[in-house]
Amino acid sequence: MLKIEDLHVAVGGAEILTGLTLDVPAGEVHAIMGPNGSGKSTLSHTIAGRDAYEVRGGRVTLDGDNLLELDPDERAAKGLFLSFQHPLEIPGVQTMTFIRTAMNAQRKARGEEEISAADFLKRVREKAKIVGLDDAKIKRPFNVGFSGGEKKRMEMLQMTMFEPRFAIMDETDSGLDIDALKMVGDVVNELRDPSRGFLVITHYQRLLDYIKPDAVHVLAGGKIVKSGGAELAAELERSGYDQFIEAA
């Protein structure tokens, strides 16, 4: 599924990822935990194709396709989804129009048929209910006037609509209350299947109480410094990141 080999990435001339290697096989959920400034967001943005991130070396492939030579929209059409840590407000862009336009752009790029207006409407209403966004919210301009938690719900709405093959969740849990955390867990667990992979980036164990990861990796100093099972998250919660910062 997602393979990252010896990835070096610089931002503004400073190398943030310093030889990161990671393999998330299909059907698995992996969590990346790490302190502030360890390179978590650099990793998610690089995989998604943000151009301010300069890849100095290494490879990133999704099912064998070299992601690094694709545009962000081509990566999305391959089934890559990024749940943003700080989702934007886009005034003037109607939420439903945007999600449908994006879905159809992905489908078109894959040579699939566009979703009909009726099917789309039925599906978006059903999924909006699951993520806890009422009808009025999805009829508004995209994220305009939304709280932090509502914006994360909007990210989850898009994830359930797009049904990506591989999803990166960049601190989706930040700013969420218990009910919302549970909703995120439900959405991920519903989507989990043998062909799909997830990379969950987080500071805390609490989201992992709802999404049981197959593996947990510690990112420090721009590389994975320790990997283990779900129990590693609990250990980090007890002992903190200091030992890894020193090690890195």
């Binding site: 301010a52 545009d71 929209d73 934007l88 886009i90 862009v93 994006a102 879905m103 752009a105 898009q158």
Partner: peptide, 28 residues
Amino acid sequence: DDDALFYLRQRGLDEHGARALLIDAFVG
């Protein structure tokens, strides 16, 4: 806005589509 452009492209809109959507929203 570069952040908005990247967001839209991550969702599958190509560069032209993302720019057009934002400009359309601006004059909208």
